[in-house]
Structure formats: structure tokens, C-alpha cells
Simulated assay, not measured.
Amino acid sequence: MAQTDISSLLDRLAALYPALPPQLAQAARHILDAPEEVAMRSMRSLAGHVGVAPTTMVRLAQALGFASYKAFRRAVQEAMRQPGAGFAGRAEWLQELAGRGDAGEVMGGMAQAAIANIETSSRGLDVATLAAAADALRGAACVHVVGIGGMHGLATYFAYVARMVLGNVRLAEPAMGVMVDELATLGPEDALMIAGVDPYGAETVRSAELARARGAAVIAITDSRASPLAPLATHLLIAPTASPQFFPSQAAIVVMMETLIALLVSRGGKEVIRRIEAVDRFRAEHGVYWRSS
């Protein structure tokens, strides 16, 4: 299996997921969220961690077209065998943090989770999908940005920065708490940029359903291929959110958003540069930036 095939393998698993029996679905969901564990754990260890019988892992591998779980695991290992920079130094740093007492242990756990989420997201990201998502944003008559609950701050950040690059970005701010009113003008020439993670907000899913029904492109950043946003997405971007604390980590989502914006800039030519310069100049002229006297 080539390096880039990890994404297509996970796409195949995600396509099977809705029709799988409960035990197979439980195993599939875990692998979709943490494919690296297939490479690192033995079959029995992973099955025990997921809470299913080892034979369930074998049946899942066979459902994906592999003759055995061993063949499936070897394929995943080959796909993930990419050179990494500074792993030893990073491990030493995390161990040092853990030795500093409770605060250091918490800090180390948070750092480790954020790094793992970003790496997993990057390894599983199909570059063609990312490029297509950026093109959909660039070509849209209007980009409606939606983030509900914990995602609202990230949606605001994305809209704020993307507005410097594109002239067609609109943050959906629900009037009187009704998001559907904000999307009333959404049409097939538009795009919906939406983020949602487990537990998935009902309004988040309804917003994506509305956009899909209206024929708009749906660029969805979510935490799993088993997410209810996945089948609604025209362009699906996965950003894991595992965290040792009670709330989902947002680090990989921020990186995904910033990567999208960077791609928009890199593909925008001189027009984008002129737009950013104009926005920056306007802000400076109107005292937006603080300057020491």
C-alpha cells in the first residue's frame, strides 16, 4: 500500500460504516478516529481496548477486502511509515514535563494529544481534497461560515482571516438563536464552511443538510469519518479532537483552517496580495492597530 492510500482505505471503511453490525461498527469507529493504533497495537490488544472480540477485528479486515487482519495491519503500517522529524527529542520533552508534578503531567498530556491530533490529521489528509475545498471557497459567490457552540469561536476566527483573502465571506450569526434564518439566501452558487465535532449539534447537522439540499458546496471539518457531517460534505476534512481533558481539543481544527487559508493565499495570485495590503492599510489608517506614542 502506498503512503497516500491510507486516506482511501479510511474512506472505504467510512463507506462501510453505516451498514456494519454494532460490534463491527464499534471497531470501525475506533479505527477511523485513531488508525495509527492498528499499526502500533497487536490485534488482541486493540480489540481489548475497543471492547470487542479479536474475531471482530478479523471480520472487519475481511470486510475491507484483506485476507487476514495481519495483512490489514501490515498495509496500515506501510502507509504510515513516513519519516518524522525530532521524535526522540519530542519524547524526551514530554517525559520531562510528566516528571514536573501534577501541572507538568497535565501540560505534557495536553501537548501530546494536540501533537498526535495534528499528525493524524496531516497523515490522513488527501491533498487533492484540500485543494478542491480551497477551490470551492474561491469560486463561491458567497462563503457562509457556520460554527455552533464550541465551534463558534473557531468559525469567527476563520471568517475574520478569510475575509482578508476573499471578498465573499459571511459569518452566520443566528438571529434570536435561529440558524436557519441566517442561511435563507444560500444557493447552488454558494459554499458552506462548517465545523462540528462529537457531540454533534443538531443545528450543525441541519445547516449542512440545508446547504446540501440547496446545492451549495459543503466544506466540513469534523472529527471522524463516522460523523453525521461526513455524508453531507462535498469536501470532507478530518481533524481529530482527542484530549485528556473533558472538552474536545481544537488544535487540529485550527491547523486545518489555517492550512485552508494559506492555500487560498498561495493560489490567489497578485489579486489576493493587493486585497490583504488594502485591508491592512485601511486598519492602520483608522487606528485599528495600537502604536506606542
Rank of each mutant, 00 (worst) to 15 (best):
M107D: 06
L60T: 00
V143K: 00
L20Q: 04
G99Y: 09
A131S: 14
E78I: 02
E96C: 11
G101K: 01
V127Y: 07
L20P: 00
V76I: 04
V52R: 04
G108A: 06
A39I: 00
Q77D: 07
S122C: 05
D102T: 15
G139W: 08
D33Y: 02
A136H: 14
A28Y: 09
E119K: 09
V127M: 07
P83R: 14
A85H: 14
E105N: 15
S45Y: 10
L97G: 00
M40T: 05
S42E: 04
V127C: 10
L20F: 01
L20H: 00
E96T: 12
H49T: 08
A113L: 00
E37D: 07
R81Q: 11
A28M: 10
T56K: 02
T56P: 10
A53P: 07
A47Y: 05
A116K: 14
A25L: 06
L125H: 04
A71V: 07
G86I: 10
E37N: 11
D33H: 15
C142Y: 05
L137R: 08
G48D: 05
M107H: 11
A27E: 04
P18S: 06
A63W: 03
V52Q: 03
A79T: 06
E105Y: 14
Q26C: 13
G84V: 15
A34F: 09
A91R: 09
E92I: 13
M107W: 11
F72L: 08
E92V: 13
A103D: 14
V58G: 07
P35D: 03
F72M: 12
W93L: 13
L16R: 06
M57C: 02
L24Q: 07
S121E: 11
R29W: 07
L97H: 00
A132K: 12
I31A: 11
R73H: 01
R90D: 14
D33A: 14
L46V: 13
T55P: 13
A114H: 06
F87R: 14
H30R: 12
F87D: 06
A19Y: 04
A111C: 05
N117M: 09
F72K: 02
L64Q: 10
E78A: 05
T129N: 02
L137I: 02
A85E: 15
L130D: 06
S121R: 14
A47T: 07
R44P: 03
I118D: 05
A111N: 01
V52E: 06
D135C: 05
A34I: 08
A111W: 08
A133K: 02
A67P: 03
G84T: 13
R81G: 04
V38I: 08
L20I: 01
P54E: 08
R59L: 10
K70T: 11
G51I: 09
T120P: 04
A63Q: 12
R41N: 08
L130F: 05
V58F: 04
T56E: 05
R59G: 08
V38L: 03
L16F: 00
A114I: 15
E96W: 15
V127I: 07
W93T: 11
